[in-house]
Amino acid sequence: MSIKYEVMKNVLATNRLQAAHNRDFLRKRKIYTLNVMGSPGSGKTTLIEALIKELGSSGKSAVIEGDLATSLDGERISKLGVEVFQINTVGACHLNAEMIHRSLSQMDLTDTAFLFIENIGNLVCPAAYDLGEELRMALVSTPEGDDKPYKYPVLFRTADLLVVTKADLLGAVEFNIHRAEDDARKVRQDISIFQVSAMKGEGISELAKHIQSQREKMPKKFP
């Protein structure tokens, strides 16, 4: 006999539940967590390094580094003397909440104010995964082109913050900053937009101030 069972189960429900658990864990410890997303080479590691230095006076940072292979980025960041945990996904195209949970349980987060999670370089898959962060930050570097927010709307729609990186190359590469900003706002009306050059130190203090002010508004518990 043929029978139909109604299931109505979200395929990502387990990830959402784990993300909620991570968020609760982090809020209780007053750790403001940022999910940093962007293409390979968009400048995620360099921006994180610059922000750690800039935020230094207002609190300690820690980093979870996601990469397919190698601990190159983790080694780079650890030179700043902060707690770093390296995840190697060995081919997986995104981080998920379970990986973050396992990392958190192995990290020393005493007195940590900011946790940066550097996602896998990819503008597609990280869109679907909540990690338990407070802020989703998406990067577009000027050499990549101003059309990225429009071409990857599903990811940029989930982003609270758009950071245009390598802004010192504006003029040297074809990148219309107004187009990128307009498109990003069409994709997500309330997105905050910053322009930075981490190499030259431009725009970093404004971005760091924004992150600090967001941390002050962070709910003290979950939900």
Partner: peptide, 28 residues
């Protein structure tokens, strides 16, 4: 990538569908 009202063009409003991903039923 356009998320606005297809009738009046306003961007003020909410996405009320399109993000779902679930197992509806199983037949056995």
């Amino acid at each position: 990538p356009i998320f606005c009202c297809m009738k009046c063009g306003s961007v003020k409003g909410e996405l009320t569908g399109g993000t779902e991903f679930y197992i509806e039923s199983l037949e056995v």
